[in-house]
Amino acid sequence: MSTHDQTAQEAREICSAEGQYLCLVKVAWQLRALNLSVRLELLRATDPAVVISTARDTVKVTATLREGAWALAWGRGRRAWVAAEDSEAAVRIAEAVGL
């Protein structure tokens, strides 16, 4: 890989990480506005996530690129995700995790 290719790849990774972070921060604030306790988790060993704490459980919401657009996922299965740009993303997440 040439130096130029490596630099371009690093730039794409930074943009991707920034996009992921922005999606997570946005949904964290939206969930907080719904009176949920949330925190942004940026651990080295796992993917960045918004963590929702409830009396019963802890749910992690991650942001991933899905067909070129950001999506928020909180579990396994076809129904455990929502497009990050969906205006009701936080509401859908809160409903899905039983809050």
Rank of each mutant, 00 (worst) to 15 (best):
M1T: 07
M1V: 05
S2H: 06
S2T: 03
T3D: 13
H4A: 15
D5H: 13
T7F: 07
T7K: 14
T7Q: 14
A8T: 10
A8V: 10
E10D: 15
A11D: 08
A11M: 13
A11P: 02
R12P: 03
R12A: 14
R12L: 13
I14S: 12
C15Q: 12
S16R: 08
E18L: 12
G19S: 03
Q20Y: 03
Q20E: 12
Q20A: 03
Y21E: 04
L22G: 05
V25Y: 10
V25Q: 09
A28W: 02
W29G: 11
W29S: 11
W29T: 13
W29R: 15
Q30D: 12
A33F: 10
L34V: 00
L34A: 02
V38N: 07
V38H: 02
V38M: 06
E41D: 15
T46Q: 15
D47E: 10
P48G: 02
A49L: 06
A49W: 02
V50A: 14
I52N: 10
I52Y: 09
T54A: 11
T54E: 13
R56H: 10
R56T: 10
D57A: 06
D57Y: 08
T58F: 08
T58S: 10
K60F: 05
T62E: 10
T62V: 11
T62K: 09
A63V: 00
A63F: 00
L65D: 11
R66H: 00
E67K: 14
E67Y: 07
A69F: 01
W70Y: 04
A71E: 07
L72Q: 01
L72M: 05
A73V: 08
W74N: 06
G75N: 06
G75M: 05
R78P: 04
R78V: 03
W81C: 05
V82Q: 07
A84Q: 08
E85M: 06
E85D: 12
D86H: 04
D86E: 11
A89W: 03
A90F: 00
A90L: 03
V91C: 07
R92P: 03
R92M: 09
I93L: 05
E95I: 00
E95Q: 07
A96C: 07
L99H: 10
